[in-house]
Computed example of a mutant assay.
Amino acid sequence: MLESLALAVLEPLEIPLYDDDMLKLLVRFGINCVVVTILVCLVYYKNSGTKDFLFTYFMINVMVFFICFTLKKFDLGLGMALGLFAIFGILRYRTDTIPIKEMTYLFMVIGIAVVNSLANKKMSYAELAFTNIVIVLLSAFLENLSFVKREMREQILYEKIELAKPARYEELLADLEERTGLKISRIELGQINFLNDTVEINVYYFLHEQESINGVNVTRRI
């Protein structure tokens, strides 16, 4: 009875209640979700330890997947897909600048969504599986290379503005290492506020050189 009612409502609108693409949607969406979950949770989060971008990665991946799959029904072609890929690929937020590594992962989750949603009869499921597996395995491999140094960053609001001079760099570095407990590789001075006598400092350090790290990418007031 419900099906008859639905048909009666949708038939004047020329909208089918079900077609063969529904099965394709479910299968490909399942593949997409499995791949992006492995990439984001088991590769990215395991190595970065930050949850700041998990929501962003999952939701952008899902939205791009559905947009591309839907537009595919209208035969808009590869140009539209590449246009969407470019738009989302250069997406930036006005709150914080996305670090290059996080931007790379954003590009990857968008690419996974595009590949899985736009694959057609010319691409077998074996090829689709191979593409997804290579992306995940290569990411995991590069993340776990022992000789690849992972440089982390912390942003600090620092009140000893008199040390923010090239001539007193060593004093500034020593004071920051004593206060933070980090072995710092380099620092970058940001905006200087002479009214409040504060300066924003980006502190960079290598994760494998630290004895213990409590967190990353957090703003501290020292």
Rank of each mutant, 00 (worst) to 15 (best):
K51W: 09
L39H: 00
L91W: 13
V62F: 13
L84R: 12
S48E: 01
M59V: 15
S48A: 02
Y125P: 00
E200L: 15
F194H: 11
L172K: 01
K121S: 07
E14I: 06
Y204H: 08
Y57G: 02
K72L: 15
M1S: 10
E3T: 07
L145F: 09
V40M: 06
Q191N: 15
T104Q: 06
L182K: 07
V27Y: 11
S117P: 06
M152A: 06
I15K: 11
G111V: 09
K72D: 13
L23C: 12
T180V: 02
F66H: 12
F88D: 10
G49T: 02
R179W: 09
L182N: 06
K72Q: 14
L39I: 01
F206P: 09
L142V: 07
Y105S: 00
Y18Q: 13
E171S: 04
L195A: 12
M22D: 14
G30W: 05
E177R: 04
I135R: 01
I60A: 09
L54T: 00
N214S: 04
A140T: 02
V43Q: 00
V134I: 05
R168V: 01
V40R: 05
A81Q: 08
T56M: 04
L195P: 09
Y125V: 00
V134L: 06
M22V: 14
L157Y: 14
I135D: 03
V199G: 12
V216N: 05
V203L: 11
T95I: 11
L142Y: 06
H208Y: 13
A129M: 02
A126P: 00
L163S: 01
R150A: 02
N214A: 03
P166M: 02
Q191A: 15
T180K: 05
I213M: 07
R179F: 08
L54R: 02
E209P: 11
L157A: 15
V109W: 07
H208V: 12
E200N: 15
L5M: 05
L176S: 05
N144I: 04
P12F: 06
I110Y: 14
L17V: 13
V148W: 06
A167D: 09
D20L: 12
Q210L: 10
P166L: 02
I135Y: 02
L23A: 14
K149G: 03
V40A: 07
L17K: 10
L10R: 03
K101M: 07
D197R: 15
K73N: 15
V134P: 00
A6F: 05
L176H: 04
F65K: 12
